[in-house]
Amino acid sequence: MVIDDSSAMRLILGRIMRGLGFDVVEAPNGAEAIARLESGAMPEIALVDWNMPVMDGLAFVNAVRKEERWRQITLMMVTTESEQSQIVRALAAGAHEYVIKPFTPDAIADKLALLGVLAY
């Protein structure tokens, strides 16, 4: 699942993920992503932007981590938010990894391999 308010970024991340063999669903903010989960989507991994309207990425991570039924979803922040304190907040909330924009496709693949959701 790719969650980003920028349709260009969803396109770019979606292309990278499809290239790595994933099926991709998209959401433009955390609230729509939660709605997709509520309706039955169960992604192996969610790539989550931080700054989004309606529900931001940190609120999404908190909401997902509160639910036992979504505990198996791996959460990776992909964001311009690069302050150390913010990274710590996201990881403490339950995000597994953190990628700072701009990124390369290889950087995404490397993080996914580290997380064990991509076989290298």
């Binding site: 920028s6 260009a8 311009t80 938010e81 690069s82 302050e83 700072i100 924009k101």
Partner: peptide
């Protein structure tokens, strides 16, 4: 969308 995201990426990295 594109100019907003580019400004966001440049701005986020300047912020750091």
């Amino acid at each position: 969308d594109a100019i907003g995201e580019l400004a966001n990426m440049v701005g986020g990295n300047v912020k750091s």
